[in-house]
Structure formats: structure tokens, C-alpha cells
């Protein structure tokens, strides 16, 4: 069980799921201190929400394959299949690597957060610096969801596991239990993080716009390809309404 307790978060970059120990330079939540999220953080928060949804869909496809009996037979193979189906978004990784202290030989997008056996979250300091508090909290929620969902998943398949141990459950089913448990945990963990990001965006929408406090926070979305990303944000109410409608059309508003 110890190994499962040190699961590290998958950034929406398709990075590897290692299950390795959290690096020593990671800091506890009390020393993370990310900045509060403001309207300026909304586009990136929205982009991360979208990529988390894409990652969740990729894990669902892995799970579907496992349930059909044609899926991966090990956790490592499940992660590899997930990675082959999820590309992530370089704009998220670009924000991470823009950290002043970023060192490619030390900081890794495959490991930005983890949870200790005692339930304490620990984060890469660059992650704390580069992303606002709600994104960090969503990542912690994702991490914290892994341990109980993996344990609950194992318990729910406990009888099949007993049968596997005793040698009378078909090997194909025994092989599927690990990947299935992992996929279920990833689905629930992604959903936990997405719920927090959605709530964050709802809060941000109620904030005043930094350029015009009479307006509520609106932004050019990063999630709808080039439709809005390079255009200056309108200054009029009707212009902002157009942006908002565009976001609705592209289904980026939760």
C-alpha cells in the first residue's frame, strides 16, 4: 500500500505516472503559499480544467478497454496507453518551466505534488510559484483522492483478488484488476480536481475586471483554439458579452 500512497500528480502534459517517492525538495502545504487567484488567472485555470477533462476522457477510454477484456494488463501498460491518448497542452508546461528556479534536471512535470503516508500534501516549489492557489488546491484534491479511491477499489474487487490468489479466477481478470483500479482512481481524482477548478472559475466570474472595475471578470479563452486567443479583450459591455457568448458556444464554461 505504501507505493500507492506516493502517487504523483499527472499534469495535463501527458507526463509519466511514476508512483515514486516525493522528492526531498518538495515543500509542505504550509510552505507552498501560492498567490490568490485573480481574473488574470482565469484563462490558465480554464485551460487546465479543459485539459483535466481531456485527461479524464483518456482514462475513461483506458478503462473501457480493460472492461472489454482487451486492455492493458499492468499499471505501467495502463499509464502508457493513457499517455498515448492524451497530449496535454504546452501552454501549461510553459507556465511551469517559466519558474526562475526551474531546472530541467530537478523539476519534472511528471511529479509536481504528492501525498505522504500521513496524508500531508507536498508540492514542487515551482508549482507553488507559477500557479494560483485554486489550481494548487485542485491538484492537492486530486492527489488526496487517489489513496482512498485505490483502497476502496481494491476492497470492491477483494473477492476476485482472493480468487486470483487461490488460482481459480481467469488470469485475464486477475490481470485487469490493477489497471481497472488505477483507471477508476484516476477518473475520480480528475473529477475531484475539476470540481474545484469549476468552482474557482465561478468565483472568478464574480470578481471585478482588472481593466474596468465596473465590469465583471471576462477573458479571452485559451481553450477554443485561435478563435479568441490573439484578439485584444473588448472594453465595452457588448464586446465582453460577445466574448462570453463565444465561451458558451465553445462549451468552456462549466
Amino acid at each position: 500500500m505504501t507505493r500507492a500512497l506516493w502517487l504523483c500528480v499527472l499534469l495535463p502534459t501527458g507526463a509519466a505516472f511514476a508512483g515514486a517517492a516525493v522528492p526531498d525538495f518538495f515543500v509542505p502545504e504550509s510552505e507552498c503559499n501560492p498567490r490568490p487567484c485573480t481574473c488574470e488567472d482565469a484563462p490558465m485555470t480554464e485551460l487546465i480544467l479543459k485539459t483535466q477533462g481531456d485527461a479524464k476522457s483518456a482514462w475513461q477510454s483506458v478503462k473501457d478497454d480493460v472492461l472489454q477484456g482487451s486492455g492493458p494488463k499492468t499499471n505501467q501498460a495502463a499509464v502508457a496507453l493513457f499517455q498515448s491518448r492524451f497530449a496535454g497542452d504546452t501552454r501549461v508546461s510553459d507556465q511551469f518551466t517559466a519558474c526562475d528556479e526551474y531546472d530541467a534536471s530537478v523539476n519534472s512535470l511528471s511529479k509536481i505534488a504528492g501525498v505522504s503516508p500521513f496524508g500531508e500534501a507536498r508540492m514542487d516549489p515551482c508549482f507553488c510559484k507559477q500557479f494560483c492557489a485554486d489550481v494548487v488546491q485542485a491538484t492537492i484534491a486530486h492527489e488526496r483522492m487517489h489513496v482512498p479511491t485505490i483502497i476502496a477499489g481494491v476492497l470492491s474487487k477483494g473477492d476476485a483478488l482472493i480468487g486470483c490468489k487461490l488460482g481459480f479466477v481467469p488470469q485475464a481478470m486477475c490481470d485487469a484488476i490493477g489497471p481497472l483500479t488505477l483507471a477508476d482512481s484516476e477518473l475520480l481524482s480528475h473529477q475531484a480536481g475539476m470540481d474545484m477548478l469549476s468552482a474557482s472559475l465561478q468565483r472568478m466570474r464574480r470578481l471585478p475586471d482588472p481593466n474596468d472595475p465596473k465590469l465583471k471578470c471576462t477573458w479571452n479563452t485559451l481553450t477554443a483554439a485561435a478563435a479568441f486567443s490573439d484578439e485584444p479583450l473588448p472594453t465595452t459591455w457588448t464586446g465582453r458579452a460577445t466574448v462570453l457568448i463565444g465561451q458558451l458556444i465553445h462549451s468552456v464554461i462549466p
Binding site: M1, I162, L166, G178
Partner: peptide, 23 residues
């Protein structure tokens, strides 16, 4: 098709290493 009554309490084994979970 096979039916087996497992003797005793039988702890659930952890998938990776078979170590028993006390539940």
C-alpha cells in the same frame, strides 16, 4: 463454471504484492 467456499476469513490481498489488508 466453478464454485468454491474459501476456508477461514481470507484477507483481501493487495494487487501488486499480495500483502494482506486487514479490514
Amino acid at each position: 463454471y466453478e464454485m468454491k467456499t474459501v476456508d477461514g476469513a481470507q484477507d483481501v490481498p493487495w494487487p501488486e504484492d499480495g500483502a494482506p489488508l486487514e479490514v
